[in-house]
Every structure is written in C-alpha cells, then in structure tokens.
Design a protein around this nucleic acid. Sequence first.
DNA 1: AGCAGGTTTAGCG
DNA 2: CGCTAAACCTGCT
Length: 152
Amino acid sequence: MRDIVDIIFAEPIDRYLEIRYDNELSGIRFITTGQNFIETKTREASFQLDEYFRGKRKDFSCEYDLSKLSVFAQKVLSETVKIGYGRTIAYSELARNVGTKSARAVGRALANNPIPIVIPCHRVVAKHGTGGYSGGVDIKIKLLELEKLHIR
DNA sequence: AGCAGGTTTAGCG
DNA sequence: CGCTAAACCTGCT
C-alpha cells in the first residue's frame, strides 16, 4: 500500500493535520485553510496523535521513514525524539548532542522535520526565548502549553 | 561558490 | 533590558 492520507482535527491548536503514510509514517502537515475536513483515522499513528491532542498520550510508538534525509538531519531528529514529554532543550544543547557547534545548522535540520509532533521539534527552543517553528510559532507555543498541562 | 537559516554570544548603550 | 554584529555549519541554488 502506498500513500495513504489520514486527516485529524487537533483541537488545542485549532488545525487539521494531514498524516501521510507510505508503508510507514512519512509525513505530517498542518493544514492552514479555514475549510472543514472529514476526519479519517485508518492507521495507528493517527489514533496516537488523536490521543496526544487530548492529553492522553505522552509518547508515540510508531515506525517512520527518514531515509530521504541527510545523515546530519537524521542525527538531529533522532536526538530530538529523546526529549521527554513536557521538557525542552536549547538548539545549542541539541547541537552538542549531535556533535556540531552550530545551533543554526540544527535549526535548519529541524525546519525540515517531515514529521512534527511525533518527532517533537517543538521541544527545541532558543536559549533566551521560544525560537522558531515551521508551522508557526503560535502552534509551537500551544503544543508546549498542552504538554505542560498534562505533564506527569 | 554563494547564501540564508527555527541560533548564540558578546559588546555597548 | 534592547540592539547590533559576527561566528556558527548545513543544504539549496
């Protein structure tokens, strides 16, 4: 089976999510239009995401495919997955874990994260602020608030 | 090769 | 605190 697409509504951020599968989970996108969609949850990660947005799930157990990404990006993302629910670390700290000195390079890799939320790039923040987010900083903030609310 | 990026730090007001 | 400037390294063109 190839290219299955699920749609779920994520209430805390008031967005629909497009969840794409190519055998394995291959991409998650925030849908920006104000249009209404029909939710379709056919595969495991979609259910897990739904639970996550209800504050009922703190970690994901699903396979995903990062093979198209550069080695560096894969390394950054695999370190990002280790950040626990409700925790944050700085770009610079993540950079150290990956073995580079450039926080900016790390930010660049995160900006290309094909699977936000499951790979919790929103937990990587600036040393003295929130930092950026591909889907929009407002979403990042709401995700962090959601986790703060359900932590423990 | 050049350049911009989800940064960071130091330096100065 | 706020602002600027420069170093940082990777990936796109």
